[in-house]
């Protein structure tokens, strides 16, 4: 039985578009906030994971590359990746790094630190990204947040691509912080 394609089945294009736009102008990184807020809103209001199940462009992209383009070994992922301690541990780590990024933005806004036009990969490696921002285009803190957020999005996508190649296409979903958070919201909402 062939399923009819819906508009949201093409959201994998959005994922590619997001990184392309951010490559040329870092301010577009703010658009990634949609992927942060919409899942929480849907889980909080509707009590389901409609975002993960249908609207996640990243998950769709991993399926496209891993399954359709056969870039995944399609091997079983290690047991611990879907374990509670790892999922919640990664969520805490991710939120801590997000908090650190917000603090850096605050420092720039308060004039206590200068704008750093770099993208930090895996929270460690600084990659110059100065072509994507013209000084004075907007307030420094807005640009700082863009660099930080883009780093976070790029890093998580790279981790997702690595586990996609090594294991199953959507292995990232097993420990995706947004997925863990929204599942917890749904569990609380349904008292499970």
């Amino acid at each position: 039985m062939k399923k009819t394609k819906k508009w949201y089945d093409y959201l994998w294009i959005w994922s590619i578009l997001y990184f392309t736009l951010g490559f040329f102008n870092i301010i577009f990184a703010w658009l990634g906030m949609i992927d942060f807020l919409v899942p929480i809103l849907i889980a909080g209001v509707s009590g389901n994971k409609f975002f993960c199940n249908h609207l996640c462009g990243r998950g769709q992209l991993f399926t496209k590359i891993g399954n359709d383009l056969k870039c995944s070994r399609n091997k079983k992922a290690p047991y611990f990746l879907a374990s509670k301690w790892f999922r919640y541990g990664f969520l805490i780590f991710f939120l801590t790094m997000f908090g650190n990024m917000v603090f850096q933005t605050y420092l720039v806004a308060a004039g206590a630190a200068n704008l750093r036009e770099v993208v930090k990969l895996f929270w460690t490696f600084k990659v110059p990204w100065d072509w994507a921002y013209t000084a004075g285009l907007t307030q420094d803190w807005i640009a700082q947040y863009s660099f930080g957020f883009y780093s976070l999005m790029l890093t998580s996508t790279l981790i997702g691509l690595i586990v996609m190649v090594l294991y199953k296409p959507r292995t990232w979903c097993t420990f995706c912080p947004m997925g863990t958070m929204t599942q917890e919201i749904c569990k609380i909402k349904h008292r499970k």
């Binding site: 039985m1 399923k3 889980a43 009590g47 389901n48 994971k49 409609f50 993960c52 199940n53 249908h54 998950g59 399926t63 879907a82 999922r87 296409p169 959507r170 979903c173 097993t174 995706c176 997925g179 863990t180 929204t182 599942q183 919201i185 749904c186 569990k187 909402k189 349904h190 499970k192």
Partner: peptide, 24 residues
């Protein structure tokens, strides 16, 4: 206990026999 409710199963089911109704 191990399901992360990602919905990957739902997307590939040819007869829509799998659902993730409550996000759990």
């Amino acid at each position: 206990r191990r399901c992360v409710a990602c919905g990957a199963c739902m997307a590939v089911c040819p007869i829509q026999a799998v659902t993730v109704p409550d996000g759990c």
